[in-house]
Each structure stands twice: as structure tokens, then as C-alpha cells.
Design a protein around this nucleic acid. Structure first.
Lengths: 217, 217
DNA sequence: GATGCTATTGAGTGTGCGACCAATAAGCAA
DNA sequence: TTGCTTATTGGTCGCACACTCAATAGCATC
């Protein structure tokens, strides 16, 4: 009878085990923070011994970078799918802002702040953050380009506009976790406002279009 | 002969010693990060024993919060002096942006990111960050109000405009430490652009006015 | 110059961390 | 069923950390 502790070893293929470790690490990173990614913490999560984590990630820093990359990458796919068979760019962009502004995005905001701080000390993480920053910028720029081609958006340089939008989102994200009781909509909606201004959209276009999501989520 | 190590004790008044500790801690926080504020690190900096730091700050977390408050407070006074006997609001604001955009501001950006991340785990620091956020916002709003009274700026709500400017500055600060080689001026100058737009100023007003600083620094 | 207050030290405790490695056993193949 | 590969364990090491406290010594006061 296996009581509280697991007695029997479960032997998995290296690829499976490694993926399992990264997944668990990403979850911990998202909910508790990157500094909580310790050998012991992840081992406990998976009900294995710490030495096993060391076996797959001889240096814990590599696991930290991998976990961040996994979490940020997954979230980007959720926010702006790479393939967008249905829905107009305007609808996708509206959905993007709806997600990236609500409280459900708090964990992601915190993760970005966490990673941008921690990269100061961890070179491997620094590179990974750079990769994700590029990925987010290019994914958003792609969406903007699609909108420009369809005549929905108007901008000289979609890449620049994408960066501007992300800067505002990151700026708002910096205040995640602060008790901002009376934050006026002129501030809360800065990201949407910036997008509408830089893309030549009428005010309210991106908040109203969020009503019809591309996937019922 | 006092060789490399200090043999003789130096006995100071509690007030002096405490101030000295906070000053040293603020310097370390600014250059190395808040997690480097350890009893040993500060003691080494001051050539005293770690136990002495514990004596003045029984809980390290209080020293961390105090160090952040001191560093952020000093920097705010440098950026926007509370008393501004000389210079127009436009000149002061231009100087503010000149400082808050250059590389000299990198350490401050990093400190803010550091503190905003660490407040997740440290309640005392969380309160202190809140206090400083309010202080920065109000100081900037005061400057804007002065400009509105003199007819230099035009805005409905200086408090909201101040928040908007700070959000953009924090957003740009998030990318401090990333190797952004080719960042176009439309992004680099976002903070100034936002200010000029929200204050009804002609484009370039705030970058040109930085030429005549109120204090030769 | 002697005295008393207290700022400062030195030594020690317990915790959690990453890293290392020989021993073990799971599960596949023969 | 047997044997072999190797995924997994258990144990250990050294380090850095915050925190505690009795002992020490600087220095102001008399």
C-alpha cells in the first residue's frame, strides 16, 4: 500500500521526463516566481528525488531559462496564435488586449518583471528573455502587418508600432501587485489607446471588437 | 600597525551609525541589486562585523526597504527638486526627461524593476515601493500643475498625465539591460512624445529646452 | 585618571541551497 | 526467465544566509 510517500520508482524515457520537468518548472515559475525554481522544489512537485533534476539539468540556471521560455512561449501562443485561420486582425488584436489587460494576465506580468530582473544575474536567462522579447514583438508585428494589408490598420512601420504597444503594456505591468485602488481609465486603457492612435483606428474600436472572440474561451 | 584588517573599534552614535548603514545599503542596492543586501555584504562595506548590522536592523527586510526608500527618494530629488526657485516648468520637465532617458538612469531603472519584483515576497518592501510610487507621481504632478498655472502646459488632469508619463518611462525601463541595438527614436523618445502630446506642447519642445539646465550638472 | 554605559565584537546555531557520485532497481531485449 | 542498460535514488559535501547572545572595549562623564 503506497501511503503518502511514493515507494515504487517510475522509470520514464529521458525525453518524457525532461518535458515533465520543464512543464512543472514553468508552472512553478508562473505561480511562485523564478527564484522558487530549486532542485528540491521541482523534485517535490514531481515526487522524485532532487538528484534526478540535477541529472537532467546539471546547472539549475539552464532549467530556469528553459522554464521561462516555456511559460512565455505558451502564453504568447495563447495571446496571439501563430496561425489565425478565422477572425479579422482587428478581432485578434482586440482579444489580445482583452487578455493582456485583465487580472488573468497578472501572473504573466509578474513573470516578465521577474525574468527582466533576474537576467541581471543569469546570462543564460538573459539570452532567453531576449529571444522571447523578439518573439513577442515579431508576433504582434505580424498581426499588425496582416491588418495593414487588409486595410484595417494604418501605420508606417508595424515593427515600431508593435514595440510601442509592448512598451506601454510592460509599463502597466510594472504596477501589477501594487494596490492601485483609484486608477482612472485613461491610464488603465493606455495600451488600447496607444494602439488605436498609432493604427489610425477610431476610439473604442478595439474594446468593442473584443465581444466576438475567435475561440470561445 | 593596522594592516589590511581593521583592529581598532570605532564607536559611533546610534543615529550616525544607522545613517551610515542605510547609505551603504542604498549604494549596494543601486549598483548590485537588492538581493545583495546581506548582513555580510554591508558589514564588509563598512568594515564592521555582521552582528552590528543585525543590531540596528534585527530583520534584514527592514534594511532592504529602508535602502530602497533612500535610494529612490534621493534620485527623485535629483530628477525633480521639491523646491524649484529657478527655471520654468518646461525647463525642469525637459531636464527630467534628459536624465530619465540617458544611460545614467540605467541603475535607477534596474532598481525599480528589482523592487517591483521583490515586493512580491517582502511585505515591508511592498509598502515602501507604494510610498515611493506615490511620491514620484505627486512630485511630477506638482511640476505639471505649476506648468499649467503658468500657461506652459495644457491638460485636464495633471495627476493622470503624470501617471501616463511614468507608465511609459517604466515600460522603457523594462528593456534596460537588453541589448537593443537598433531601437528607433519613435520608441526611445516615447516618454517625451507622450508628455508633449498630453500637455499640448509642440513636438521637440522638451528635447530642445534641455539645453539650458537650471543647475550646471 | 577612574568609572559606567553601551556600541561592537566573536562565536555559534540552524536552514536551505547547488552540486557530486556510488549504489540501486526498473524495464526492455535476448 | 535472465541479463544488461541506465534512469533513479540516497547520501554527502561545502557554502552562504539570517539570527542570537554573552563577552569586550570605546569613550563620555565625572
Amino acid at each position: 500500500m503506497p501511503s503518502s510517500v511514493q515507494r515504487k520508482r517510475i522509470r520514464k524515457s529521458p525525453a518524457d521526463r525532461r518535458a515533465e520537468i520543464v512543464e512543472a518548472a514553468a508552472a512553478v515559475a508562473l505561480t511562485e516566481g523564478l527564484e522558487c525554481l530549486t532542485l528540491r522544489r521541482i523534485a517535490e512537485q514531481l515526487a522524485v528525488r532532487p538528484g534526478l533534476i540535477s541529472h537532467y539539468f546539471p546547472a539549475v540556471e539552464d532549467l530556469v531559462a528553459e522554464a521561462f521560455g516555456s511559460a512565455a512561449g505558451s502564453e504568447l501562443d495563447r495571446l496571439i496564435p501563430a496561425e489565425r485561420p478565422d477572425g479579422t486582425p482587428t478581432e485578434h488584436l482586440a482579444r489580445f488586449f482583452a487578455h493582456a489587460t485583465g487580472e488573468a494576465y497578472d501572473n504573466i506580468s509578474r513573470l516578465w518583471i521577474n525574468a527582466r530582473h533576474l537576467r541581471r544575474y543569469r546570462p543564460v536567462l538573459r539570452d532567453r528573455v531576449g529571444v522571447q522579447e523578439t518573439a513577442w514583438r515579431e508576433r504582434l508585428a505580424d498581426l499588425l502587418r496582416a491588418g495593414v494589408e487588409r486595410g484595417e490598420f494604418r501605420t508606417d512601420d508595424p515593427d515600431v508600432t508593435a514595440m510601442q504597444i509592448l512598451v506601454v503594456i510592460d509599463g502597466l505591468g510594472a504596477y501589477t501587485g501594487a494596490d492601485i485602488g483609484n486608477c482612472p481609465p485613461e491610464v488603465t486603457l493606455m495600451a488600447v489607446t496607444t494602439a488605436e492612435r498609432e493604427l489610425g483606428l477610431a476610439s473604442g474600436t478595439l474594446t468593442r471588437a473584443a465581444g466576438r472572440p475567435t475561440t470561445p474561451n
